[in-house]
């Protein structure tokens, strides 16, 4: 086999074509790798880089150089989408990622619907797209991943999550309407990103877990809308990874219906067993972020090598990295895959 560059390797895995070894990536968004040590070493810092395309691209580049991850991952938060829907965002600090200070609507029934194409021209949508374009043209061999907020989590970022979760049962019509709104927006965002050199999309949907929703609600709300955004990515010519937080056991059987090109999971999931249970699905993960923060690096290396040996298709952190994770620990992970 000819030597693959990082972009070909990742795309091959997602297209079920042969590879020399698994890629080691960190998708961005809720799973970004903007760690404090890299920012302090380079002077390219958050929160400034959340709002400036050039800084965002430069930060993604230095992260990739320092950590050894084989991709660029954009953006560095999961508030880009909610912001354009009118939720109030706290941009955070160097150490602390942005968060939603207040959701725009108190419940599903009070959502005011706007034109999705108009929303796509607002906020930091263009910042992310522009940063992706820069990276894709400067480094054609390295895949640019955009990591977006999944549809359930986006709906629960527009509507206060507690009433929204109740609405899933008490007002399903309104809840479905919000889900459809979030989904149409995400499909538009993906289409836009596909025109800016993005190689693949990751949807991180931390509210859409089996533990929070249970299998019935997961089937009714998570599966069909995740399926739609994944299909939207495919229509735009991009593969899609879906990250499911927490214990996915209650919803394992439903995962194939999402149609993702890879499923990424939390550290508590045994990926080898998941692979056995769902042989048609590419698996991604799942080096413990606790381990990546506290080490020791020998253990990180050992855990990573075990994942490679077990045939896990893409190696990545299991969830959002702590911003205080040391570079040395991340390198122990990325180098273990390459050794």
């Amino acid at each position: 086999m000819t030597l693959l560059n990082p972009k070909q390797r990742l795309l091959n895995v997602l297209e079920n074509k042969p590879v020399d070894r698994p890629p080691v990536i960190c998708p961005g968004g809720m799973m970004n790798s903007a760690i404090v040590e890299v920012m302090k070493n380079t002077g390219i810092t958050l929160p400034e880089a959340h709002q400036d395309a050039d800084l965002m691209a430069r930060l993604a580049r230095v992260i990739q150089q320092y950590t050894g991850f084989e991709n660029f991952g954009l953006p560095f938060c999961m508030t880009v989408e909610a912001e354009v829907f009118g939720s109030t965002i706290d941009m955070g600090t160097l150490e602390c990622e942005p968060k939603i200070a207040k959701e725009r609507f108190p419940d599903s029934g009070s959502v005011v619907y706007e034109d999705v194409e108009t929303l796509l021209q607002q906020g930091r949508i263009a910042t992310v797209a522009e940063a992706a374009s820069k990276l894709a043209s400067d480094f054609p061999d390295i895949p640019v991943l955009a990591s977006l907020t999944g549809p359930v989590s986006l709906a629960a970022s527009i509507v206060d999550p507690i009433p929204f979760l109740k609405d899933l049962r008490r007002n399903p019509e309104a809840a479905h309407r919000v889900m459809d709104y979030a989904t149409r927006f995400l499909i538009g965002f993906v289409r836009l990103l596909s025109q800016h050199g993005v190689s693949a999309i990751t949807f991180g949907d931390p509210t859409a877990t089996g533990e929070i929703l249970g299998p019935k609600m997961f089937k009714e709300y998570a599966v069909p809308y995740l399926h739609r955004v994944v299909a939207g990515a495919h229509e735009a010519g991009l593969p899609a990874i879906v990250h499911i937080c927490g214990d996915l056991s209650p919803v394992k059987a439903l995962l194939p219906e999402i149609g993702a090109d890879a499923i990424s999971t939390d550290a508590l999931i045994n990926l080898r067993k998941l692979k056995e249970a769902l042989p048609g699905i590419n698996t991604m993960g799942n080096v413990s972020t606790y381990l990546l923060e506290f080490g020791p690096k020998e253990k990180i290396s050992e855990v990573t090598k075990r994942l490679v040996k077990e045939g896990i298709d893409i190696i990545s952190p299991a969830c959002g990295l702590s911003t205080s994770s040391p570079i040395e620990h991340i390198r122990a992970m990325t180098e273990a895959v390459r050794s």
């Binding site: 979760l165 109740k166 049962r169 008490r170 533990e211 929070i212 929703l213 249970g214 609600m217």
Partner: peptide, 8 residues
């Protein structure tokens, strides 16, 4: 039961 049920 899951979270929506417990909240209600």
């Amino acid at each position: 039961y899951f979270v929506p049920e417990l909240l209600l």
